[in-house]
Amino acid sequence: MIEVENIGKTFDDKEILLGISGTFHAGMPNLIIGSSGTGKSVLLKCIVGLLEPNEGLVKYDGRDFTHADRDLKTEIRREIGMLFQGSALFDSKNVEQNVMFPLDVLTKMPKDEKLDRVNFCLQRVGLENTNHLMPSEISGGMQKRVGIARAIVNSSKYLFCDEPNSGLDPQTAILIDDLILEITQEYNMTTVVVTHDMNSVMGIGENIIFLSKGRKLWEGTNNEITHSGVKELDDFVFANKVMSRLKNAL
């Protein structure tokens, strides 16, 4: 479980996030949704410690990460896996080296054990026998899978995904969503997914936080999202053609 308390973030006097609080539960994907430029990525970066929030704090299973000393920070970092928007695979390393990298730098595992673990994770994301391909040689969807394998290879407890299905065709996008859902349930991870894709929202949105202009305007589940009564959220949800047709049909 991750608790976010009253996070505020400004960039050169520009308020990007204001008083964001929320709880992300283990064993289910937790979604942060909102239109582009509302601060979703900034919030995610504040949570994983890539950015320092100006206010507020983040707790990982009760441990205050924001004010943690170096040792505790390192300890929590080792439990975090992250899938970036563009996959962020190291382009000078092949698939196997990419997935093995966290084990190389974070553990003292012997080489053959590392290789077993890497192969297990690659198999888990459906990419066996791609070990020696370079990131530039595989498709966007495969890159995301490698990114997921790299994020879970060190048995992470917390998984963060920034727009995991951006740039993918709808079918592949759903496969990636399902993969994230399965892995989250299988390993009881606390997973936070940033997205603006209504397909994902309806598909895996058990716990959703809606951001608009740096504020949290709503939270709930995908069953409640169509009748939230929040204007900004309605605008966001029904901007999707399928959703608006559905609404008119009802």
Binding site: G49, K73, R77, R78, I80, M82, F84, A88, F90
Partner: peptide
Amino acid sequence: EQIDALEVMG
């Protein structure tokens, strides 16, 4: 974001 990926790993 490859640099961010390194930073996340500490």
